[in-house]
Design a protein around this nucleic acid. Structure first.
Lengths: 129, 129, 129, 129
DNA sequence: GTGGTCTAGACCACG
DNA sequence: GTGGTCTAGACCACG
């Protein structure tokens, strides 16, 4: 279920965040579903509990998961979209950098477009799988 | 010509790298053109010369710019595309993360597609502007 | 284990790079083995941490070592050979310059051949010691 | 006759030194032959006269060329070998670094041996062509 | 504790 | 004037 890349430049806690969001979008994790505890997940992926904890805190801040005292951590019932304009701007910059790198890697627009569509479909396009 | 965001999470030297690639793709910087010296650019963007130097070194390693001893730094004549498969995989991951964030931000596929096309056109799509 | 020559014309960070590659080839450093931290090595060889850091960064770029976030730096598992033709050309030039200097120093072909063989054997000839 | 690589990491004055030694070893430049003046050579290779001057000074110091006041610069009559042990040690280090790089580039001993022999023969092996 | 980034500034080789 | 190397040291993210 869970693959983390030790050697990646992307911080492990960020990999966890993206992975959980991805699993949510793909319908593998469902609303209200219980997540592994910090200790369980850190054991599963061989990471420091602090690292998992940091990921969970950030996910909670974003409304993706919820902690219920004494009961554990759960996927949120609703998928919160954050229509924060600053957030949109950040994504646009992410896309701009990706496009620059892509052109330098010799990728064509149709190629990236097909990747984009493929990813969107794999993730259900937000249609709350 | 050159805007650097102090408060960004993206490191200054990385911002410089992307900016120079962007200006190259948009045709603002042309093949063989002389770049500002390390000291000049660091004065322009109010950064430390070492930071600019690090960006220039990485750009040289990527074949984007060239250093000629005692003469300064120049845009490379040819735009090197790097058909390195590892590099393509890294870009695909970049795109995957962007899509996850985009869906969570409530963006639709058509919206991102139009952003993508817009960016590609703005950057000449590698058609060596 | 680690000797750096202060007075050499070869930059300290380059000496570190060659030394680590040499120790790897001689089997002193083994795949997956933990390297001294930047701070430790800089203390060992009495150099600035930044200098060691620069060497480590270049070694990582070449695939010789790997950095794992917050865990330290490790020898890569596999020895990456880089069959980059530009790289081969650079080595041939290195050899050409060495031969010119050798002839001017009055060295004969058999002498250099025996040095070459000796070095190759000492380094295991890439047979992944 | 003379090729200098602007973009090489090897300093231009060092390229000139190696080139003149190479031409001498290959018999293109002969003992006692007149060399182009500093100004002529700097014009030929589009370099700064100071750069050529530095190369000539170093070549003279090594006994490869001779300056005769008011007459110009000439190849030395005899090929001076310098059996300086420090010099031999430096060449051995040069060879060691080359071998390390070669193994990392996936080159085999026979390959380098054949390169070595080839170069030696091309340069007359010091047999004062 | 670990490496990454950045500043400040020195010194030097090269051109 | 140009970039390359190095020192000294701060601050921070990550684990």
């Amino acid at each position: 279920m869970f693959q983390i890349d030790d050697k990646s430049n992307v911080a492990i806690y960020e990999q966890i965040i993206w992975k959980i969001k991805e699993l949510r979008l793909r319908g593998v994790l469902r609303p209200g579903e219980k997540l592994p505890s910090v200790r369980e997940l850190s054991a599963m992926i061989i990471a420091n509990p602090n690292t998992v904890s940091k990921a969970y805190q950030e996910l909670e801040r974003q409304g993706v998961i919820e902690t219920r005292q004494g009961k554990g951590t759960f996927m949120a019932e609703a998928m919160s979209n954050m229509p924060d304009p600053r957030y949109r701007a950040a994504i646009k910059e992410q896309l701009q950098r990706m496009v620059i790198d892509a052109i330098y890697a010799g990728l064509s627009l149709p190629e990236i477009q097909s990747w984009l569509q493929e990813e969107f479909e794999k993730l259900g396009g937000g249609k709350d799988a």
